[in-house]
Amino acid sequence: MDSMMSERAADPGAAAIEREIAGWMRGYLAELLEIPLEEIDDDTSFDRYGLDSLASVGMIGDLEEWLGVELDPVLASDHPSIRALARALAADERRRLLLTRRLRLPAASRP
């Protein structure tokens, strides 16, 4: 938790991206699994939610469509929870500017 806070403090832009992507993914899993949004947990593995590799490839494909950037189809196996995946995407510095624009977030320099 401490490391997370310091990370966010260090880069508010990345934190905003992570928050947006995690929010989208919660909605996606709720729709896919037909369970209430509140029951989706950011740290539960996709596997535990019953998503096999094919379902996670489909999810990454839809995330790709929403973000408008190309993603590795097997991304969810390397980062197997909402928090891990959202953080991994936000951590990619080359992509951060693009995502900031796509998600219509305030520029990264602003707190």
Partner: peptide
């Protein structure tokens, strides 16, 4: 909704 019919990859 969020789930698309096809994957554009």
């Amino acid at each position: 909704g969020k789930i698309g019919r096809v994957i554009n990859d």
